[in-house]
Design a binder for these strands. Structure first.
Lengths: 110, 110
DNA sequence: CGTGTAAGGAATTCTGACACG
DNA sequence: CGTGTAAGGAATTCTGACACG
């Protein structure tokens, strides 16, 4: 699941409450919760149900805020996200295929 | 004031509430507040007065917890910290002196 | 010395809804 | 569609103090 290195541990750790995210991004709680409903961000929850965000989420929210200002809609943002995700997936697939060819090559030598 | 690079920005940003710090460190609120009173950690405060910690603070607390388990006292920990700080200060001073000598050298050449 | 706890108050967060558009 | 707001409840955090040792 970890698509990032150990080094980025703090970037993805979900530890920030919504109030702090508001301060960091300048967005309202309402907006932040709405972007979650539109599947643009994915905070974790405490047992009680309080949202926890990562610095990565905060960066994403800044990005969202800019694009919303430019008139983009959440549905478009969502599509854009999925494109990037499938690109990442494609790269993984390619890597896997290349490894497969190498394995086939070495298997022939055996 | 920044003794760290841009890269560590998220390491020093004070964004974590005490409850989350408890979860991350396994310490009680009482303990965490006490170590602050003993000047071992320095959280920031929101306008209202709520404490905010950084990942760096969390790391320090883990360190403190280990040493307390080993029977060390907060006063000793404090001394240890100050030694490290003064060592950092000494290094800065040395650097400054070396630069001074170099400047003196180049000034002579002029 | 270091930590647990009960006390009371103030701020935080949550959800679902009404509103405008 | 995206966001503001009032509503009511539940969990969070704060401080100062009593307690044990």
């Amino acid at each position: 699941m970890a698509t990032h290195s150990q080094k980025d541990a703090y970037l993805y750790k979900k530890v920030i409450t919504i109030g702090t995210v508001c301060e960091l991004t300048g967005l309202s709680e309402r907006q932040i919760r709405y972007y979650e409903k539109r599947k643009l961000i994915f905070p974790e929850r405490t047992e009680r149900g309080n949202r926890k965000y990562s610095f990565s989420d905060v960066e994403m929210l800044m990005d969202i805020a800019n694009k919303m200002e430019d008139g983009m809609q959440t549905s478009e943002l969502r599509k854009e996200m999925q494109k990037k995700e499938s690109k990442r997936y494609d790269n993984k697939l390619k890597e896997r295929m290349i490894r497969g060819q190498l394995n086939a090559y070495f298997n022939k030598r055996d």
